[in-house]
Every structure is written in structure tokens, then in C-alpha cells.
């Protein structure tokens, strides 16, 4: 690691690990409990690009030596990114998406098919990957109508930069319930949770 251990990997972590992590966690928890609601977090971290401060904060909150993580190829080739994550969280790298507790994906076009990640088993559906997907923005994109637990009636989100055919992939993810992946969409303006129970409903006259 010494080759990549520029000073930067030691910087940019939580200043107050216990309180910072608690505040970020509450927003992640709210996001997954109320899918579609944009939850704001104080970023607290300054990771190397292309990781955003919000993504860095989520990583510092949830990752540790017990969580294998999968990185998209772009992140994987950035030694300072790998070095920062390793130093700040001690999370080991997963060999494949199937072994990953978490996946970090720096943009929508780098998101592999969802079935390439751990889906959990019928006995242990919790043993599945949580994907943290970085997007350009959570507003201004094609509207998606969400329904399911945590949503009172319907909730519309407009993320920018989801991969093509995401809606079909997500429907397939729904159909494996209780198995399946969960997704946290992150942008500079906050985060949105998409647990496997959330359905994306067809919209009138809109193409997803």
C-alpha cells in the first residue's frame, strides 16, 4: 500500500467519527425507510475524486473490516480511491459482486446488471449487496413513480443519470423478493433509498 499511500489517503475522514457516523446513518436509515424522500447529509468527508463527499460519508459510516466491498472499474483503477477507502474504513475488496456486502458505483453507466451482485438466499435474504450509486443529481431527470412500504401513497423522484433499462432491471429485482439488492442513490444534493420492496410504477405517457 505504500506506493499509493500519498498523504491524501489519511485525510478527509470523519472529524468526529461517532457523532458524524450517527448523523449520516440516521439519514441513510430514513432514506431506506421512506423510499423516494431526498435525505440531506452533511458530507463530513473529503474523499478523492470521483468519490463524492456524500459517498465518502456513507462509506465511512457503513464500511469496516467485516464488509467486503466491490468497486466499479473506474474506482478500482484509481489507487488514491482504493487507498482512501482502505485507510478510512479497512474494508477488504470483494473479488466479485457476489461476495460484496456493498458496491460503490461512481456513475450510472458503470452499474453492472443487478443480478451480478449478491442477492441473499431464501433463508438469509439479508446477505445481499447494498449498492451505492453515485448520480449527477437527484432532481431534473425523468420522473419515476415509487410505491411500496415506507411510501404513504406514491412518491415521484427525478434522478439524473440512471442507466438505461434500469426500470426493467428493478422490476426483475422486485420479482425475486425476499431476495434482491438494495440501492442508495447519492448525489451532491442528498440521497434516496431504493430498498428491494420499492416498486417503480408505470407513468402515463412517460418513458422511463
Amino acid at each position: 500500500m505504500s506506493a499509493v499511500a500519498s498523504q491524501d489517503v489519511f485525510r478527509g475522514g470523519f472529524a468526529n467519527p461517532d457523532f458524524d457516523a450517527q448523523m449520516v446513518f440516521r439519514q441513510i436509515m430514513n432514506a431506506l425507510a421512506r423510499p423516494g424522500t431526498v435525505c440531506m447529509i452533511d458530507a463530513f468527508t473529503e474523499p478523492p475524486a470521483p468519490l463524492s463527499p456524500c459517498t465518502g460519508a456513507i462509506a465511512a459510516t457503513l464500511f469496516d473490516a467485516d464488509t467486503e466491498i466491490w468497486l466499479d472499474p473506474l474506482l478500482l483503477e484509481r489507487q488514491e480511491v482504493v487507498g482512501w477507502l482502505t485507510f478510512q474504513t479497512a474494508a477488504p475488496l470483494a473479488e466479485t459482486g457476489f461476495d460484496a456486502r456493498f458496491a460503490l458505483v461512481s456513475s450510472g453507466d458503470l452499474l453492472p446488471p443487478l443480478e451480478r451482485f449478491a442477492q441473499g438466499t431464501q433463508e438469509y435474504p439479508d446477505r445481499s449487496t447494498t449498492i451505492i450509486l453515485q448520480l449527477d443529481s437527484l432532481e431534473g431527470g425523468v420522473p419515476l413513480v415509487l410505491a411500496g412500504p415506507g411510501i404513504k401513497d406514491r412518491h415521484v423522484i427525478e434522478p439524473v443519470g440512471l442507466p438505461p433499462r434500469f426500470v426493467e432491471q428493478w422490476a426483475a429485482n422486485n420479482s425475486h423478493y425476499p431476495r434482491g439488492v438494495d440501492i442508495i442513490l447519492v448525489a451532491d444534493d442528498g440521497l434516496i433509498g431504493l430498498p428491494r420492496t420499492t416498486r417503480i410504477e408505470p407513468t402515463d405517457g412517460q418513458e422511463a
Binding site: 446513518f25 431506506l32 457503513l62 439479508d126 438494495d182 430498498p195
Partner: peptide
């Protein structure tokens, strides 16, 4: 706490 928080998130998802 991290371990419990991760469990809580999965519990909410299922």
C-alpha cells in the same frame, strides 16, 4: 454500532 446499523438497514429493506 456499524454492525447493528447494517442489520437495521437490511431489516428495513425486508
Amino acid at each position: 454500532k456499524r454492525m447493528i446499523r447494517r442489520a437495521i438497514l437490511k431489516a428495513i429493506a425486508i
